[in-house]
């Protein structure tokens, strides 16, 4: 099985004036194939850094990442990325964007077309294949980004605030889509978000990270994602259990933020 193992990963950035930023310190966890993990945390706690290390864009200063028992040394098509926005290729049509990965591999056009058509259907964009990406709304663009990632049939999908730039309603719909795709495809998904609600809803597991040094402060196992596959999302979010967890996590993050503010204030004095 294609398990993802993050083994004692640390990342220290050195600034030009010799300062060291401990973006990550001794982060370890493993994800089984098909697990859905969401990551929350205050700004600057190393979420993107962690994702970039797993994607293979950054090499950690210590530790290693393994997928299916193979150590990761660079980017690869078995780990797909979905970015916040603006990572689509505006010189290509929607269909060409989705087929990009396959055409890089030299897949025959007829086969690409088949996959693309199927994916357009899956993300609810069947009539939009020939459109230009900039003609689509933000939500539609993120659907294309999801489809483009899925076309390559990766083992792991990494998402860095994929819904961050969307309005609340579109965002809810997209959360439903992510959940649906997760269930249908059985992919391992790591999703970074700033929304506590989203993290609760889109995580079987949820990490709350803390900054300086960046680390996993608290881990949760949550039932909401599994329930969301069959039940109405609104219903789940209205559930008292959901509300209680949200309060708990909000408080924790609030305290962390207070602490950071306090630190900088005393540092300033």
């Amino acid at each position: 099985m294609s398990d993802l193992v993050i083994n004692d990963v640390s990342m220290i950035f050195e600034t030009p004036n010799g300062e060291q930023v401990h973006a990550l310190e001794n982060v370890s966890f493993s994800l089984k194939q098909g697990e859905l993990l969401s990551i929350l945390g205050p700004s600057g706690c190393g979420k993107s850094t962690l994702l970039n290390i797993i994607a293979g864009f950054l090499a950690p200063t210590h530790g290693k990442v393994e997928l299916a028992s193979t150590e990761i040394h660079g980017p690869g098509s078995e780990r797909g990325m979905v970015f916040q926005q603006g990572a689509l290729f505006e010189w290509l049509t929607v269909a060409e964007n989705i087929g990009f990965g396959l055409s890089m591999k030299g897949t025959p056009p007829s086969e690409i077309k088949q996959t693309v058509d199927h994916l357009l259907e899956t993300v609810g964009l069947h009539d939009f294949g020939e459109k230009a990406t900039y003609e689509l709304s933000g939500g539609m663009q993120q659907r294309v980004a999801l489809a483009r990632c899925l076309a390559n049939d990766p083992d792991v999908i990494l998402m860095d605030e994929p819904l961050g730039a969307l309005d609340a309603l579109t965002r809810e719909k997209m959360q439903g889509l992510v959940l649906k795709l997760w269930k249908e495809t059985g992919k391992t998904i790591i999703l970074i978000t700033h929304s506590v609600e989203e993290a609760l809803f889109l995580g079987e597991r949820l990490f709350v990270m803390a900054p300086r040094p960046g680390r996993i402060k608290q881990e949760y196992a949550l039932p909401f994602a599994e329930a969301g596959v069959t039940k109405d999302p609104r219903e789940i979010k209205a559930d008292p259990a959901f509300g209680a967890k949200r309060e708990e996590i909000l408080n924790m993050i609030w305290e962390m933020e207070e602490e950071i503010m306090g630190q900088t204030e005393t540092a300033g004095v």
Binding site: S77, F83, G86, F89, F100, G101, C149
Partner: peptide, 27 residues
């Protein structure tokens, strides 16, 4: 060129030559 586009292309399996021709050039 936005770094996220380059990263996206690498994650989609593009090699350096393809990145140059299919991303950097049109961009």
């Amino acid at each position: 060129v936005k770094l996220s586009k380059i990263h996206a292309a690498y994650s989609l399996g593009a090699n350096k030559r393809q990145i140059l021709k299919r991303v950097i050039l049109p961009n």
